[in-house]
Write a protein that binds this DNA or RNA. Structure first.
Length: 788
DNA sequence: ATGAAGAAACGTCCG
DNA sequence: GTTTCTTCAT
């Protein structure tokens, strides 16, 4: 009551009492100020299920954080009564900060704000015994998972060449994403891998995990489900504990996460999901758009709030994005609007090939820089990372500083994983995977033969590898040299473990890395990146200091994927469209809008219309990253898998509203001459989108007059090469790929290891267009197929 | 055990 | 075409 009054008083900050109160609880006052009516509704609808459909740039995080602040401020919940789940650590961190800013230190203690995985871990550690684990279980990263799967496959006597561990990992992840334990996998699917052994292999893998006292990422959720199903009392305690549940990015939840949430939400039913069906771009990772589309059905009586007022982009940008996304059928429907000015139109520009596209794009950035635009407000968003190289090359040439966002993650780097393996093994001598990783890193002469012997010994004595090493050196099984090396290694780990009790763990880590010879290994290597690796190791030791002890650090590191990249600096940002979600920039370049690349052919092949719609959402995400300028471009020729092929402008370009788009002609360039646009599509007002045009385009493309890479050969080549060109280029390509044209004829029956049987629909040199019985139409190289 | 040559991938990527 | 992994030979 009195708190509500305080809220109402807040606007009249002239009152002495209000000012005095604000000095004590400064953030409690006025946190609702500045919310628009819809946002306010989303914040104040505290009871029962709520779905907040938050379009791009509509203040989603603000609603989420204000809602939490509100729940605490009006006394509905204490910080530890609230479960708030996000997908990424970054989002969780951000939310913590913003809540802190709203309600002060009171918000610091939100123990249940975190990623699905972090919270799952926390719950599992408390009840590990109930699902057959010890509470100090280790969490396996992707690389460990793969190594383990390889062992499982070999143990089952299956040819790992034919059935790579990667494929099994994908299948298992897929099952886990759908909440399926080995015995729940549908019979039809279980046979999909390794001559019908997919199911048993999954079971064997889980068995191995159990004996290693380890879990993978999927298990963090799956085992929670098992725990709750087998122990209703435990479930009830959590249902009771979480008075309010909030979920960020609900459109990205997979089935397992959905089940996890639903079990918890069945308690008090105060669940608030925030998301945007138009920004669901992780279907290939198991996300189910359906979860958000079905929310009202799953939670009857749900309040649905739409946030459609956009605070980020100008009118034209919003119009372009909205018109585009309106083509999707599977959506709840929102229309973004803004009070901002119309601003600049979205530009669309064609380039001759990807190299020219990169050049024009970077020159455009350069001139923006000259006009005084900060580079930190410029981003280039590509569909696939392979597009990055050409753009990077160009940026380097022009001397424009840039950074790549979402590159290899810190923890995934080899040196970090090696170092972590040392730390893991010190903390947990039973960590066999860590042992295998470092037994011969740095090289110390312990090769396959030694490892084999160790494995045998470990199995016979049923002890972990490190323990086996200590035992085996007392026998005659090994030759003298490896025996003494191994003895020394075993003693090292014993010593380090003791040291851990006596010294600060960061110092011990430093000692471990030095005494093991690991740092020395990189110091001796004089390659360009060795220095960077040593720097990363230092960073690792430094970050260790932020944790109370080594186990806490190891847990953190296994859950935290990205060491937050050093922000700031005047740099152009380069990233994939996926990595761009949640970010915004004044100017956004969107290159590579070509059918096949974007929308990506594979997405369409594998998921049909759903795939196309996801690609369209990706386009929508791309455009809505821009505050002031969105610049789309495409190339007419692009090298795909090393072969030059002609491309067609993305169908998405045609779907943009003409009134918000401006078609830019590439600046005239000496190497082309005035006739360059003769064969260039004019994106608007012509019929280039028609099948006929596309066929015409595809046909001429087969006989390109000049190969992209030779374009700069000068006017001589351009003028003279017009007639002689085609043969020359064709010849080069064929010679470089296989040496002979395809021996397959149209109509021939073939077999492809990945796609199975099919019949040849078209032949182009050594490229075949094949209609596969199962996989549909695909382009493949003839060297990958054999006669059926 | 280490380097060179050959083969295969090459879609997006969080925890 | 480029990169990365594997395999083979030394």
């Amino acid at each position: 009551m009195s708190r509500d009054a305080a809220g109402a008083e807040a606007p009249s900050s002239t009152s002495i009492a209000a000012r005095a109160r604000a000095a004590v609880v400064p953030q409690a006052a006025g946190y609702l100020d500045g919310l628009n009516p819809e946002q306010r509704r989303a914040v104040e609808a505290t009871e029962g299920p709520v779905l907040v459909l938050a379009g791009a740039g509509t203040g989603k995080t603000r609603v989420l954080t204000t809602r939490i602040a509100h729940l605490i401020a009006i006394g509905r919940a204490r910080p530890f009564d609230i479960l708030a789940v996000t997908f990424t650590n970054k989002a969780a961190r951000e939310m913590k900060e913003r809540i802190g800013a709203l309600i002060g230190p009171a918000g610091e203690g939100m123990p249940w704000l975190g990623t699905f995985h972090a919270i799952g871990t926390k719950i599992l550690r408390r009840h590990a015994e109930l699902v057959g684990l010890r509470s100090d279980f280790t969490i396996l990263g992707t690389d460990d998972q793969l190594r383990l799967l390889k062992q499982v496959i070999e143990a089952a006597n299956i040819d790992e060449k034919r059935w790579p561990a990667r494929g099994l990992a994908q299948a298992i992840d897929g099952w886990k994403n759908r909440g399926l334990a080995p015995e729940q996998v549908p019979a039809g699917e279980a046979g999909a891998f390794g001559f019908g052994k997919g199911g048993p292999l999954y079971a064997a893998y889980q068995e191995r995990l159990r004996t290693l006292n380890a879990v993978d990422f999927g298990d963090l959720l799956l085992l929670c489900l098992k725990l709750w199903r087998d122990h209703p009392d435990v479930l009830a305690s959590y249902q009771d504990r979480f008075r309010y549940i909030l979920v960020d990015e609900y459109q990205d939840t997979n089935v397992a996460q959905y089940l996890w949430l639903r079990l918890l939400a069945q308690g008090r039913r105060n669940v608030c999901c925030v998301g945007d069906d138009d920004q669901s771009i992780y279907g290939w990772r198991g996300a189910e758009v359906d979860n958000i589309l079905r929310f009202e059905h799953d939670f009857p009586g749900a309040v649905v709030v739409r946030l459609e007022r956009n605070y980020r982009s100008t009118g034209h940008i919003l119009a372009a994005a909205s018109t585009l996304i309106a083509r999707n059928e599977g959506r709840l429907g929102k229309t973004l609007h803004t009070e901002a000015a119309a601003g600049e139109r979205v530009t669309v520009m064609g380039a001759w090939d990807s190299e020219e596209e990169a050049r024009l794009l970077c020159e455009s950035i350069e001139s923006m820089q000259a006009r005084g635009e900060p580079l930190s407000q410029v981003a280039v968003l590509v569909r696939i990372s392979a597009q990055m190289r050409e753009i990077e090359d160009r940026l380097v040439q022009l001397g424009l500083p840039y950074r790549v966002i979402g590159g290899p993650r810190f923890y995934e780097r080899a040196e970090i994983r090696d170092a972590l393996a040392y730390l893991r093994l010190t903390a947990n001598p039973a960590d066999d995977l860590a042992f295998e990783r470092i037994i011969n890193t740095p090289k110390r002469g312990l090769g396959d033969a030694t490892l084999q012997a160790l494995h045998g010994h470990a199995r016979r004595q049923s002890v972990p590898l490190l323990q086996a090493a200590r035992l085996i050196v007392e026998t005659e099984e090994l030759k003298p040299k490896p025996r003494s090396t191994l003895r020394a290694l075993g003693q090292c780990f014993g010593r380090w473990a003791k040291l851990l009790e006596a010294q600060p763990h960061a110092e011990v880590a430093q000692t471990i890395l030095e005494e093991s010879g690991y740092t020395e290994m990189w110091q001796k290597e004089r390659t360009a990146d060795a220095a960077g690796r040593l720097e990363n190791l230092k960073e690792l030791v430094r970050s260790l200091e932020e944790f109370p002890d080594l186990p806490a650090f190891l847990e953190h590191i296994s859950l935290v994927m990205d060491a937050s990249e050093a922000e700031g600096g005047e740099r152009v940002s380069l990233m994939t469209l996926h990595a761009a979600k949640g970010l915004e920039f004044d100017t956004v370049f969107l290159p590579g809008w070509e059918d096949g690349l974007f929308p990506n052919q594979r997405a369409i092949d594998e998921s049909g219309r759903a795939g196309l719609e996801e690609e369209r959402r990706l386009a929508h995400v791309g455009i809505t990253r821009a505050r002031k300028r969105a610049k789309i471009s495409f190339a007419v020729n692009r090298r795909i898998h090393g072969l030059w092929s002609s491309t067609i402008p993305s169908r998405f370009i045609d779907e943009l509203p003409e009134s918000s788009v401006e078609v830019i002609e590439a600046p005239a360039n000496f190497s082309y001459g005035p006739s360059r646009f003769d064969r260039q599509p004019t994106p608007f007002g012509s019929s280039y989108g028609t099948p006929g045009w596309q066929r015409a385009q595809a046909n001429t493309a087969g006989q390109d007059r000049f190969g992209g890479q030779d374009r700069f050969g000068g006017q001589d080549r351009f003028g003279g090469g017009r007639r002689g060109g085609p043969q020359q280029i064709e010849g080069t390509l064929v010679a470089k790929s296989t040496g002979s044209p395809s021996s397959f004829a149209v109509g021939a029956r073939i077999f492809h290891t990945k796609f199975g049987p099919g019949s040849v629909a078209a032949v182009d040199g050594n490229k075949l267009t094949v209609d596969f019985d199962k996989a549909g139409r695909k382009m493949v190289l003839d060297s990958f197929v054999q006669p059926a």
